[in-house]
Amino acid sequence: MARTQSFDRDTVVRAARALFWRTGYESTSIPELEAATGLSRSSIYNAFGSKRGLFDAAVDSYLTEVVRPRLRPLAGQHVEPSALADYLTGLRAAFQNLESMPAANGCLLINTAGAPIADDPQVARVIADYRAELRDAVVRGLHAARGQVPAPELARLADAVTGLMVAAFAMARVDAAEAARSIDTALALLG
């Protein structure tokens, strides 16, 4: 007879997510995961299969609970003209709040892109899909803010704004003020 789980999976995944976000996949040890989640090594392996399984669950949680709620105003059928500027302004505020996860730790997936685990094709695909999701949100926001823009100009502007967002997330851990300045540049490009 299989044992039933006596823990809240979402709570465990969130605790692991915070640890992976702060220290990265490779630098996070099983004892640290045990301490953060309150689970034993055997419970982690029984519930998630491996450290990697827990990491994958943490990434899914990050996308579902952190990224997509912030992008929701840019993802619906009707996007307000101010939605992209509002998103960028909120991101800038997060970078200025040095105690926020984005200011202290950047972006879990952008951080992962520069780590050895990104050599895994599945992880690389998740990161590429995330970047595409960001860019698609930017395109929708630009359409709402600017109306019809010639396709080449729209592509250049979307690439520039998305690149500035990615750069801001990458810089946040090192220099949150510089990350905020990247977002200021993205806002300036919106006109």
Results as ranks from 00 to 15, higher is better:
Ser42Tyr: 10
Phe7Val: 02
Arg52Lys: 15
Thr162Pro: 02
Ala93Ser: 08
Ser182Lys: 13
Tyr130His: 11
Tyr87Asp: 00
Thr89Ile: 04
Ile110Leu: 11
Phe7His: 07
Leu54Gly: 02
Ile44Trp: 03
Arg70Ala: 15
Ser43Trp: 08
Tyr62Asn: 05
Val166Asn: 06
Leu54Cys: 10
Val166Met: 05
Ala155Ser: 08
Pro116Phe: 03
Arg9Asp: 13
Ser100Leu: 02
Trp21Lys: 07
Glu32Pro: 11
Ala15Ile: 15
Gly191Leu: 01
Leu74Cys: 00
Leu154Asp: 09
Asp119Gln: 13
Asp184Met: 06
Met171Ala: 07
Arg41Ser: 11
Ala172Thr: 01
Phe7Arg: 06
Gln96Pro: 08
Ser40Leu: 13
Tyr87Thr: 04
Glu133Asp: 14
Val66Asp: 12
Ala124Pro: 15
Gln77Ile: 12
Ala18Met: 15
Ile117Met: 00
Thr112Asn: 02
Tyr45Gln: 14
Met1Val: 15
Ser43Asp: 11
Ala118Ser: 06
Glu26Gln: 02
Leu88Trp: 13
Val79Leu: 03
Ile44Glu: 12
Ala83Thr: 09
Ala58Thr: 07
Ala167Glu: 14
Asp10Ala: 12
Glu178Met: 14
Ala177Trp: 13
Arg41Phe: 10
Thr64Arg: 12
Asp8Cys: 13
Asp56Cys: 11
Ile110Cys: 09
Leu91Arg: 03
Ser61Asp: 14
Pro73Gln: 06
Leu88Cys: 13
Leu98Cys: 03
Ala172Leu: 02
Ser40Glu: 12
Glu32His: 06
Arg9Asn: 10
Ala85Asn: 12
Tyr45Cys: 12
Asp10Thr: 14
Ala93Gln: 09
Leu33Lys: 03
Tyr25Pro: 07
Val59Thr: 04
Thr162Ala: 06
Ala58Cys: 05
Ala35Lys: 13
Gln77Asp: 12
Thr23Leu: 06
Ala36Gly: 06
Leu134Phe: 04
Ala94Pro: 08
Gly38Val: 15
Leu190Glu: 01
Ala137Pro: 00
Ala128Ile: 11
Asp129Phe: 01
Met171Tyr: 07
Arg17Met: 04
Leu134Cys: 07
Phe55Glu: 01
Ala103Trp: 00
Ala35Ile: 10
Leu157Met: 07
Gly49Leu: 10
Arg70His: 07
Ala132Cys: 08
Ser182Gln: 14
Met1Trp: 12
Asn46Ala: 13
Gln148Ile: 14
Asn97Tyr: 08
Leu33His: 01
Ser29Thr: 15
Leu189Thr: 00
Gln96Arg: 12
Ala145Pro: 08
Arg72His: 13
Gly191Ala: 05
Ala36Arg: 11
Leu84Arg: 03
Glu153Phe: 09
Arg17Ala: 04
Glu153Arg: 11
Pro102Met: 05
Gln96Asp: 12
Pro31Met: 02
His78Gly: 04
Phe169His: 08
Ser82Leu: 05
Val166Arg: 10
Ile117Trp: 00
Trp21Ala: 04
Leu108Cys: 10
Asp120Leu: 01
Leu91Val: 08
Ala83Val: 04
Ile30Met: 15
Arg92Cys: 14
Tyr62Met: 01
Met165Ala: 07
Pro150Ser: 07
Ser27Met: 11
Arg92Glu: 11
Ala118Gly: 02
Gly147Phe: 03
Ala180Asp: 09
Ala58His: 04
Val13Asp: 10
Arg131Gly: 04
Ser6Asn: 15
Asp136Ile: 08
Glu34Leu: 12
Asn111Trp: 00
Ser29Lys: 05
Asp120Arg: 09
Ile127Asp: 00
Arg146Lys: 11
Arg135Val: 08
